[in-house]
Design a binder for these strands. Structure first.
Lengths: 254, 254
DNA sequence: ACCAATTTGTCCGTATGTATT
DNA sequence: AAATACATACGGACAAATTGG
């Protein structure tokens, strides 16, 4: 999309009827994608409903249903007599690298960034967590449920596990400092780095729609990874869900 | 998903009515996601329709519609009196790193891997391509449209741009060798590495659904990046779309 | 102040698709 | 397989707000 010649042409995209996805939703997805690819003009104004209807080959009401959904999502805003406008133009770029830290990574992209601890608990590690942290299955771990915000908008929703014996007080530190980096430092781990990350994409489930304020059918990017300390010993396993509409990930070398 | 306690529990996920996605399709998406997360047993057998219906809180007819669609897509296969089975179990893991090469990256995960050149052309670089390759806007570049397959299944669909003056014969080389690495070597560039990659996720557009054989509403992972030669000079800008159902990306350090 | 053109908002009715029983 | 309820899609008509002459 980014590297296409056209100026707002939105390639007469064929809609598919009878495939279990309503036309208005397909059109909504097209409009969402079209934003930032020249569909809206320089003021963020969309073409009028009648023109969009003609372009998609549907009734104006169907376009209106799509726009209504996007307004409900907070993507668009419309004013009677004036037109329909895009609310947020740009997507945040979140770095995935050896030294990823939430706040530092978004520096310069959002005025206000913060991490909120939603919940925490001690529990026995399941097979995946145990393997990732190099612990025996069933060993106690501490799980943190966190929400990352940028300028008040939910950006990421993560679940992290730490060894309960090595980081018994991690939850309190995170609650106090609002920072994993500082909480680890208070626990005695001054430095850490990302050992591996896998990235997948899927539809938002209801946890995602609630915590990240998404609409059903929205997409989340899921990054799973392990942080290790200076000696290469695993200290944190985490799984982070990003709103695909609001962020893109960038793999930085270094 | 991966790191959740349950064995096949599939978290009573609430379905949403009136959101533009038919229930049978939502259930289909859930089943697709549930595969590989313990929904199917060790033989790849799904729970019986009646049980799925109870689990999702819908009528059995609706589950049957979902299964029928997944059978049509080639994800499931069902046998009267025996049950419904998963065709492909695992998702491929595609490495994104400094030394990403399609075929080598999937080694061991698929018996047969190949890259097919769908189309190629010479064109003036647009702003994005020119910036990525460090060329002046409007300079001629060669664009390659490629399809990556693993065991005959389309995995990735990429568009790449090369400087037309530095790599005038790249299309022919790729067509002959079915490999970017070898085509670059024939052009005199023995070594290259990935300088940067950004990853986003979005709904499949009709190009994607056609080339990657996806159903509308499916998700694609989009990786955009630049390859540079030994001296750090950009030689290739590419944009690759992966089927999010079939592939996950992994960021390898090194 | 007025008018015409443009654009979104609301209402009617009808046909088809989806989901349940 | 059939009856029912609701969501989706279409078509047309008009009201309400904005813009510019």
């Amino acid at each position: 999309m980014t590297a296409r010649a056209g100026r707002g042409s939105l390639s007469k995209s064929a809609l598919h009827r009878g495939v279990g996805v309503a036309l208005w939703r397909q059109i909504g997805d097209e409009i969402r994608r079209g934003i930032g690819a020249g569909l809206a003009d320089e003021n963020g104004r969309l073409p009028p409903e009648a023109e969009l209807a003609a372009r998609f080959g549907v009734n104006r009401h169907t376009v209106r249903a799509a726009i209504a959904a996007l307004i409900h999502e907070g993507v668009l805003r419309s004013e009677q007599g004036r037109g329909t406008y895009v609310r947020r133009q740009k997507r945040l770029t979140y770095p995935i690298g050896t030294r990823t830290r939430f706040s530092a990574g978004l520096e310069g992209q959002a005025r206000d960034r913060q991490v909120e601890l939603l919940d925490h608990m001690k529990e026995p590690a399941n097979a995946v967590v145990a393997a990732a942290l190099g612990l025996g299955a069933g060993v106690d771990v501490i799980r943190l449920e966190m929400l990352g915000l940028a300028d008040g908008v939910p950006i990421s929703r993560s679940t992290s596990w730490f060894s309960a014996t090595l980081f018994p007080d991690i939850a309190g530190y995170v609650a106090r400092t609002h920072s994993i980096t500082e909480a680890l430092a208070l626990s005695g781990t001054r430095d850490y780095r990302r050992a591996s990350t896998t990235i997948e994409a899927r539809h938002a489930d209801d946890t995602d729609t609630r915590d990240l304020r998404l609409s059903p059918g929205a997409i989340v990017l899921v990054a799973r990874g392990v942080n290790v300390d200076g000696n290469g010993k695993p200290i944190q396993y985490s799984q982070t869900r990003f709103s695909a509409d609001r962020v893109e990930l960038t793999v930085s070398p270094a």
